[in-house]
Design a protein around this nucleic acid. Structure first.
Lengths: 186, 186
DNA sequence: CTCATTTTTTGATATATGTCAAAAATCTTT
DNA sequence: AAAGATTTTTGACATATATCAAAAAATGAG
């Protein structure tokens, strides 16, 4: 889904607004394995994914921990850093070649001001992020590794083909070996 | 800290705004063990805690799971339900007798409109909720039960005196027995 | 296509935390 | 203060998942 299509699915957009959105949208193509944002970077951009897969990760005891995955029609950024204007605590990396719409923080603030109906988009993004986190906590806290895996498979079936086992395992909060065993017995 | 003091610490408030805030603030006292919001309730109120302790909890396999604690100078509501205008998935219960400021959702929206500077408060509340969740995930996923306990003790020392062991244990994602043992060996 | 590198799987063993049950301690209410 | 209710602690044992190591499979560069 293109960014404009996504927006239209949330609010109805006038010709004028459409033009405005085009103006602030910067379409970029990024190769696989590229870091969009590194740790301690200022995080002034929000990326809408038209095509591709991105993850956010950080290090714990020298090990990469994947914090989230984002795919087509989703947004990617260090959300905490973006809303709080703090340095990023995670690395944002493309897992596949990506076609992205880059949105600048201040351009977005500006858009909110001039087209108040776009605030709805901002709120929806925030809520989406929040809800995803809530769900993740429920999962981590009360499901077995197998249940977490099954849930991921059903909600994002293609992820296992697109991301590496280690990336998925750390996202699920288990070791790669355990994930491999879970997968084998099903 | 009173609600007005709290607001003043975030934004500077005019006499007019102060009066307005007083108008929409409803000060209530609630006895211990009272449910402010039950599961499936519409969640139209946000509570600022001037005094007391509140928790949000839900049931998993018939067991109570505490999702969060909120104490003096913090807000309490089913945040997900509040922002998304969905029914609450948790029960919000006072753990101690509480003095609260009850804020109505639509009165708040109205305030945002009429005093745009108050939007900042709304955003800060949202961000606060989000950041707390992020931190909790990091904790749950990569710390041992003991480390999670120690962190809680240092960030909210009084909680262990104010909430029951079972409530704290489920918040930390461990059983009451395990928490009891951790506490004994330190 | 082949060799080298990376990723995934398998095996043996260790360990943190859970479960169930009962005792001990603490808190309420009369 | 006593009796009952609730909460916390302790014990024995079970189990899911981690760790470390090595083999197997998949991927990628030349």
């Amino acid at each position: 889904m293109s960014f404009t299509e996504y927006i239209s699915s949330v609010i109805s957009i006038s010709k004028l607004l459409e033009k405005e959105i085009t103006t602030i949208s910067k379409k970029i193509t990024v190769s696989k394995g590229h870091n969009l944002i590194s740790i301690d970077d200022r995080c002034n951009n929000l990326y809408f994914i038209e095509k591709g897969l991105i993850r956010g990760y950080y290090f714990v005891d020298g090990k990469e921990i994947t914090n989230w995955f984002a795919q087509e029609s989703e947004f990617a950024t260090c959300f905490y850093a973006f809303i709080a204007s703090k340095p990023s605590f995670e690395i944002i990396q493309t897992i596949e070649e990506c076609e992205l719409i880059e949105l600048n923080y201040s351009a977005l603030q500006d858009l909110y001001k001039r087209f108040p109906e776009t605030e709805r988009i901002g709120r929806m993004i925030t809520e989406n992020y929040y809800i995803k986190l809530e769900e993740r906590i429920l999962n981590l806290q009360f499901k077995t590794a197998k249940e977490r895996y099954q849930k991921l498979v059903s909600s994002r079936p293609s992820l296992l083909q697109r991301a590496s086992l280690g990336q998925v395992a750390s996202y699920l909060g288990i070791t790669q070996e355990t994930l491999s065993r879970i997968r084998a017995e099903l």
